[in-house]
């Protein structure tokens, strides 16, 4: 089963994103971590056991504004890592600041969604960045 790593500090946002994934029929298991530091820990731990095999996520849904390590910092760290850079990253943010959008694409993000995100929009973006590996079942 395809895996999604959701990195989100706000419990309400976690719930909304999970509901959106469910409502759009995305067929994947979702692992949630609550800030950028945890996300990097999680990714690096799995890297030891050959990330691309069974353990690693197929796509990251990454909030931008988080305590300690921000989403943009996670993105930057991932995209400068030879193994982690292959995981597609979709940034999810409440902010409409264009500086974040520009930085995200400059550092190699595959997708960028501004909340509120419609379920279909989320599913379509996930399908696009994973090359159809994760798609909505309905």
């Amino acid at each position: 089963m395809a895996k999604i790593l959701l990195v989100e500090d706000n419990a309400r946002d976690v719930e909304i994103t999970l509901a959106n994934l469910r409502n759009s029929g995305v067929d994947a298991s979702v692992q949630v971590v609550r800030d950028g530091e945890q996300a990097l820990d999680y990714l690096h731990r799995r890297k030891e056991f050959a990330l691309r095999s069974a353990e690693g996520p197929d796509v990251l849904l990454l909030d931008v504004k988080m305590p300690k390590v921000s989403g943009l910092e996670v993105l930057r760290a991932m995209k400068s890592d030879p193994v982690l850079r292959n995981i597609p990253v979709i940034l999810l943010t409440s902010s409409r600041e264009e500086q974040d959008l520009a930085a995200a694409y400059q550092w190699g993000a595959e997708g960028y969604l501004i909340k509120p995100v419609r379920p279909e929009q989320l599913a379509a973006t996930i399908a696009a960045v994973t090359g159809g590996a994760i798609s909505a079942s309905r």
Binding site: N10, D13, I16, V64, T93, S94, S95, R96, K115
Partner: peptide
């Protein structure tokens, strides 16, 4: 403001 005021409204 952009982030923190939008977030609760979105919720």
């Amino acid at each position: 403001v952009s982030h923190d005021l939008r977030a609760p409204l979105i919720h």
